[in-house]
Measured scan of single mutants.
Amino acid sequence: HNLTITQGKLFFHYNPKLCLSEIHKMEEVSGTKGRQERNDIALKTNGDQASCENELLKFSYIRTSFDKILLRWEPYWPPDFRDLLGFMLFYKEAPYQNVTEFDGQDACGSNSWTVVDIDPPLRSNDPKSQNHPGWLMRGLKPWTQYAIFVKTLVTFSDERRTYGAKSDIIYVQTDATNPSVPLDPISVSNSSSQIILKWKPPSDPNGNITHYLVFWERQAEDSELFELDYCLKGLKLPSRTWSPPFESEDSQKHNQSEYEDSAGECCSCPKTDSQILKELEESSFRKTFEDYLHNVVFVPRKTSSGTGAEDPRPSRKRRSLGDVGNVTVAVPTVAAFPNTSSTSVPTSPEEHRPFEKVVNKESLVISGLRHFTGYRIELQACNQDTPEERCSVAAYVSARTMPEAKADDIVGPVTHEIFENNVVHLMWQEPKEPNGLIVLYEVSYRRYGDEELHLCVSRKHFALERGCRLRGLSPGNYSVRIRATSLAGNGSWTEPTYFYVTDYLDVPSNIA
């Protein structure tokens, strides 16, 4: 807008934040220059609390790290170098490059900038070799853009010569660093050979998330399962459950009422301010606690030095998902009996873990797994792929695949051998790939016309006998059925096997 004052003059007093240069501009645009008398524009009460600059400061050096910015700028000295009290560095987070010096300023003089007072450097006698002032900004957020400017702080001049310097606002972004852990990993099994893994992005990506790394490792069953005799009275049979499938998407929606109208769909109840505040506090606490764990609990591995020492970490090797089922080394339970199943799973520490690289999504279907087997899954978020990966501390989750139908069934015939004193040795093959492992066998036998009897055969007993022995049988026709019990439950009964026990007292003698 054009402003013209045809008559009258300007009068400025007691404006401590208004620089004289701005008042002189007002004289020019209003056409009143030359009308004012000496005392109409006070030299001592206008701009006496402001830094009124008329020179431009330029930054000469900028260096960044993930949490620091090192700045240096060209030296500046007023005509009387004693008038320079120091520099004021202003900075704040700036997602967009549209910041002005006066953003967030209120009537009390406060604003949204963080201000650092910096002492002037030592003055050199040689004007050509003056030290460049600077400042190291610490405690910054990774991968965050900051708006920065600097200006001088000078003393009051009796001659009211307006001098000083100020830089333009520059924008500097800190470097990326390792992201925080992925949030809320959930693993479920939808079949006997697959596990579905879902997660949420890290709360602090500290860069642009480029991919996720998912490692999985087959877990050995508890050692007590191999040692305890679950045929003993009072000892509860062990059981394991597989990871249940995901709930429906509708039930997972946030901010939804727990109660549904019987007449149909209901609208979600909005969260109160107290609920939102509580969630923010919980989120802040979780982030602080995660940072504490990362800094205190997890110790970084030592990389190899120039002395030739090897990095103890196993090298990563990509495998196809079809090879995942046989990740671990199978060892027989008892070496003397080769027909026992290889369900003991000690994992070799030198073995390469299978892994998958996930790009542009937060889910993965891990296939080719062994049925009813526990897996430990390790999830890392990465925001750099080359020249070397920059990934987060791992988040861990466990899951067990679903049982395989008929995996616990005894394959092959049940054979028998009759000894003296009416002892019958029953023999059968253990299931080759049971659900988890076989903890015991149930032997059901009966003599024709009598009630059915049951015998429990422990895992250890089966390994020693290759089956079991029935003792003290009365003469007669017998039928026997056997079924295995694994961590997933009972298998199917075998087809009945028949044998006849004679009275050993009636056996004919070869003595003449």
Rank of each mutant, 00 (worst) to 15 (best):
N383H: 05
S363W: 10
E417F: 11
R313P: 14
P431Q: 15
T386A: 15
V297L: 09
P205K: 15
D408T: 03
F355P: 10
K236T: 07
G306C: 07
P238N: 11
I410A: 09
G467W: 02
A394L: 07
R390T: 05
L321F: 14
A405L: 12
P413H: 13
F289D: 09
K406D: 06
P475T: 09
L464R: 09
E281S: 13
E224V: 15
P434E: 02
N255D: 10
T307W: 07
E404T: 11
T347M: 14
R481H: 13
E227G: 12
Y396R: 12
E221Q: 09
V331K: 04
L505P: 08
P332F: 06
F285E: 14
Y259R: 05
T340P: 13
S392A: 01
E290N: 13
A330R: 15
E433W: 11
S268C: 02
V327T: 08
S398D: 13
Y441M: 01
S251A: 05
A395D: 05
V334C: 04
P387N: 03
S474A: 09
A335E: 12
K233N: 06
P314K: 07
E495R: 06
K406R: 08
S257C: 07
D385V: 10
D408E: 01
P338K: 08
C267G: 09
V501K: 03
Y441H: 03
N421I: 15
T307M: 06
V443R: 00
E362W: 14
H211C: 02
G412H: 09
P387M: 15
V359S: 12
K361H: 06
E465M: 08
V501R: 02
D273L: 14
G489Y: 12
G308E: 06
C269A: 06
T210Q: 14
S444G: 12
G489T: 09
R446P: 00
E378H: 13
A309I: 09
F462K: 10
A309V: 11
Y478H: 10
K432Q: 04
V296Q: 15
R400D: 04
S486E: 00
E420Q: 14
S492K: 02
T485S: 07
E430R: 05
R469W: 04
N477L: 08
R447Y: 15
S223M: 10
S367F: 05
A488D: 05
G207A: 08
T241C: 04
C269S: 08
P431M: 02
N208V: 07
P332C: 07
E465S: 14
S305F: 10
G374D: 09
P238R: 11
P387H: 06
C266V: 15
F298I: 10
C231Y: 02
S342N: 06
V439E: 04
G449I: 14
S203E: 10
N490M: 07
S398W: 06
G368W: 07
N421M: 05
E362L: 07
L321N: 09
V423D: 10
G472E: 04
K271V: 03
F289N: 09
N477G: 09
V214Q: 00
F246P: 08
L437Y: 14
E279K: 03
S367I: 09
P238F: 10
D291P: 04
V331D: 04
N422K: 14
T401V: 07
V501S: 03
S479A: 14
Y230K: 10
N383T: 05
S274M: 14
G308C: 14
F462M: 11
G412S: 14
F372Q: 04
L426M: 04
K361V: 04
R471S: 12
Q219D: 09
S284K: 10
V331I: 14
P475E: 05
K271T: 14
S458T: 13
G325D: 15
V334S: 10
P496G: 15
P349R: 15
V423H: 00
H461E: 05
A263D: 13
D385Y: 08
L225H: 08
S262L: 11
N421W: 15
G308D: 09
S251W: 00
Y500A: 09
E260G: 04
H454T: 04
T340A: 05
V439C: 13
F226T: 12
R286L: 07
P434Y: 03
P314Q: 02
F372I: 02
G489L: 05
V327M: 08
L237W: 13
V327Y: 11
T485Y: 10
E265W: 14
K460Q: 09
K278V: 15
F337I: 09
H211W: 05
V296K: 09
P300L: 04
A395M: 07
R240M: 09
H461S: 10
N490T: 08
C468S: 05
M402P: 10
T272F: 14
G472S: 10
S392W: 04
E310N: 14
L379S: 03
F419Q: 14
L440V: 05
N360W: 15
V365R: 04
P238Y: 09
T303C: 11
N326W: 06
R370A: 13
G467P: 01
K357F: 13
K287L: 07
G472P: 05
R466D: 09
E221P: 05
W242T: 13
S257N: 10
P508W: 07
Q429E: 14
A220R: 08
R466C: 13
E362A: 11
V414S: 02
P354V: 08
L225D: 05
N383C: 13
F355D: 03
M402Y: 06
F246A: 07
E404N: 07
D261H: 08
A394M: 07
M402G: 02
V397T: 03
L293P: 02
C382F: 01
V345L: 10
W216D: 00
A263M: 10
K317C: 11
A407L: 12
N208G: 05
T340G: 03
A405V: 13
R481A: 10
F289Y: 05
L277W: 08
L453G: 08
G467K: 06
E465Y: 13
C456Q: 01
T241R: 06
H461L: 10
F215A: 13
I276D: 03
L235S: 08
K361P: 10
D311L: 08
I377Y: 10
S283G: 09
P434L: 01
A220L: 12
E227V: 11
G476N: 01
T272V: 06
R471A: 04
E258R: 12
H211I: 04
R459H: 13
E227K: 07
T210V: 05
G325H: 13
D291T: 04
V501H: 05
L232V: 05
E433Y: 12
P338M: 14
Y448K: 04
W493S: 05
V345G: 09
P244G: 11
R301A: 07
F226M: 11
S444R: 03
F499I: 11
V358L: 13
F337C: 08
R316F: 09
V297R: 05
E388S: 05
K460I: 07
A309R: 12
G306R: 13
V297D: 08
V296M: 13
Q252T: 13
P245H: 11
E465R: 09
H294K: 14
K432L: 08
S257G: 08
R353G: 14
R466I: 07
R353S: 11
L369K: 00
S248K: 15
G374K: 11
N326I: 08
E356V: 13
L487K: 04
L369V: 10
F246W: 07
Q384E: 12
S315P: 10
V297K: 08
A263V: 05
E224T: 06
V214L: 12
